[in-house]
Design a protein around this nucleic acid. Sequence first.
DNA 1: GCATCCGTTGGGGGA
DNA 2: TTCCCCCAACGGATG
Length: 646
Amino acid sequence: MPKPRVIYWFRTDLRLHDSPALKAALDLDPECLYPIWTWDPHYVYRARVGPNRFQFLLDCQNDLSASLTRLNPKSKLFVIREAPQTLFPKLFKAWRISHLVFEKDTDAYARERDEKIMELAKEAGVKVIVRTGRTLYDPDELVRANGGKPTMSITQVQQAGKKLGAIPRPIPAPTSIPDPGDTSLDFEQARPSQEPDYNAIQRDSADRSYSALAGPNGDFAVPSLSELGLKPATTPHRGGETLALQALDIIIADTDYTATFSKPLTAPTAFSPQSTTLLSPHHHFGSLSCRLLYWRAQDTVNSYKKGAASTPPTSLTGQLLFRDMYFGAQAALGYSFGQTVTNPHCRFIPWHLPSRIDPSTNLITGTYDIDSPQAEEHLRRWREGITGFPWIDGLMRQLKTEGWIHHLGRHAVASFLTRGGCYIDWERGAEVFEEWLIDHEAACNIGNWQWLACVAFYSQFHRIYSPIAFPKKWDKAGMFVRRYVPELERFDEKYIYEPWKAPVVDQKRWGCLVRGREGGVEGEFRVYPKPMFEFKERRDVCLKAMKKAYKVGLYGNDPRVLDGSWRALFDDEAEGPTEGREGPIGAMVGDGEAEHEEDVGDDEAPPAYAKSHMSPESPKSTRSRAGQKRGADQTTLDGIFKRLKS
DNA sequence: GCATCCGTTGGGGGA
DNA sequence: TTCCCCCAACGGATG
């Protein structure tokens, strides 16, 4: 009996420690082990990924590759530049592979991809081994233990978790690995189409991702940012298992911090150092096992003064339970989890800037309707950090440049964009976070936006974050704002969260005028914009609108959401695109009576459904944003697979 | 089935 | 400064 020839396929598990899947591969006692990464065009072109997250990924890959080489000088992480769906059949043959091993991934796209790969493996006579290690529990088992329903509360996770038994203890990293076999690539590369390239806006030079199967030097090396044509990263946060384990050691060494950690008590305004662990990007890329953190935190709690330690959900382990909750919701709901339409667990609210829906799949298209030019302006200013509210702007600028903001900061900006300010669709906000966060985890991002928008997981919409009162509670002196909105650094703390109230003579004395909408420089003075609306006023408008939407009580899977008849249930006076009787969310169909103009806002020919209600005074107000498009899903559409209608 | 309690992270006012 | 209640009210969990 010949020994197995094994491919270990790294994906979101870029580590050697606590990897049940890697252990399973090594337990096969292989003749050769190929640790590989497939440079998937789905991630490169069809997901929203800014340079900061790309850099974190490359950091993780470089670190892992070096660690593999330390275990065996002949080995490394072999990066192969082709879509896995086309690569694997050729690779199985060329390297005479007997086994394929990888860690389970329940992301909507990953599931489809892996099903396809398992099919291809079967055809090639290759055995596939899959192990769970990305979450505390296997999300599918968690859902099963929850009665087959998505986990929508932390209690459900705890109850279902009990039925599944103890969370597995971490397993040590291997101390040796077998040689890779012959690595010649005796086949043609299937180059993916770069179109559509949703990350075109992230590049300042040509992308050379697919220059050759084994890279420009034929050595399977991890690419560099510049090779990918990406703009330089600006984040100070770096990736890799080595750094992750060091960071974990430092956290656990502080017994009091670890054992008494209570999330709601950590300051969102702290930045040097930040008040939470900043381990989330490592969990996303797998450079840190969540089970390792879980057990090191739990062991610390167990040996701490009795009764003095914090407990879930606020404790460190509680944070990981929330992560599992979102994975469980996503595992049960699939693509519909990432959108309102078709989602039975997501409330329907007639937000501004609603997503467009592809009528052939009922999935979001990545474009949206501009029902209100003012809302579009609000979104742009929120994104760019020039809303005129220093707390919001500081957070958005920190997010853009550093790729990470504190959880409560995410609450502040999300509440502001959706139910507590702009009344803009939470899906718009989730897209911006997807692009900029280095710790972007589709399930958690989507879940948290639904939570904050009060469409799922949470419903106390009266609790609205004030961009003035809330940060004052944590940072009366405004140190955070001074750091991230430097034009205001000399303002008196009396005005730091409301600079527009400062007398002009003081504004001049402090070197910054508060005027206009864009900020910038004016002569010898810097300029910071005026607030883009009266917050209290918007707060009341949103509150009233949320109350109405809750009373109407529609969920995303209601036929009236899709066919547009929801409009009849809302007042014309209500906030959001509710006026008129025609044109549902995404603006599909209609009875043909209403007059439409052809939508001409897209680069590509708009599909027939891309018509929607036009208000008389602004006939083009519903033109879709002529920006990037993307496939519909939590990260995007691959184009290779056809999705079933939900 | 129904009442009650409580929910990781609101704001504001008064004692 | 800290605690408490109220605002007006949701909905899952619990008994």
